[in-house]
Structures are given as structure tokens and as C-alpha cells.
Amino acid sequence: MIIGTITNGIVIDHIPAGKGMEIFRYLDLEHVEYEVALIKNAVSEKMGKKDILKISEVIDLNYEMLGYIDPNITVNIIKNGERVQKIRPQLPETITNVIKCKNPRCITSSEPELKHIFKLTDREKGVYRCLYCDSFAK
């Protein structure tokens, strides 16, 4: 399957297969006016299968969220048909309002206006815990 290249915009590559839609939804791309292509299960030498997201606008991205989904994701910024920047999001030290704490005893369960903050407690295993109650991110 061939999807055309983009002249100006962002290509989010090396998304683990099946996670593309999660990013699509998180970036709220459903109702935008510009062109967006989500390629699922593209063949990848390195990953076997991967998802790719092509967005024909340079929009603000939440690198915390991308790094949390998978630190191997790459973000390519395209200008005038050329890649001008390649960014590899890292696992962030903290993630804010990306995921919610599921612990019914956590203060965030009864005060929804509080920010949902998770801290990285094991970089090797990518483990995050709720800043408030220490529950593991699920």
C-alpha cells in the first residue's frame, strides 16, 4: 500500500503496532481539517509490524505522552519535503494528565480537578507510579 509523502508536517514513526489509534485519539485528530493518515501494521525490518502517523501540519506534540507510549517512537518534522528534525521522545520523569490513577482510594478519584501525575520509578522497566498514592500505572 502506498501513502504519499508530505511536504510540510509531522511523521510519527516506529509506533508499536496497535498503538497508532491511541495516539490518533490522544492528539484529537478525528475532526481536524488538514490531511492525516494512520497506517496500521506497516512492514518494519526492526519491529516486524509498526504503525505510522502522517500529519500534514506541524502541530504541538506532547512528547511526554509519546515517550510514555513507547520511547522508541520517532518524530520527524518535515519542511518543504525534507526532514529537518528527528526527535526520539524519552521516557519522561513525570507524566501529567496522560493517564489516570485507577486506585479508588486515591485523592484523584474524588477530586477530579487535580492533575493526574505519575513519576518514573524504574527507567529500565518503564515503571510509573501515581505521585499521590504510589499505585502502579496500568
Binding site: 485523592i107 477530586e111 487535580l114 498514592c133
Partner: peptide, 27 residues
């Protein structure tokens, strides 16, 4: 003291004076 875990931490993010956690839920 608060029955919800993390309530004193949330308080400390907004309080103009020091907060001492006197027990937060089972935490």
C-alpha cells in the same frame, strides 16, 4: 489527616503554609 491517599500531598501543592501528613488512607 484524610481518608484518601495522597490528599496531604495535594494540599501541599497549594498551601501557603507547611503541611504535615497526619495519615492518608492506607498509604
Amino acid at each position: 489527616r484524610h481518608p484518601k491517599e495522597g490528599a496531604p500531598l495535594a494540599a501541599s501543592m497549594y498551601s501557603p503554609v507547611p503541611i504535615i501528613n497526619a495519615g492518608d488512607g492506607g498509604h
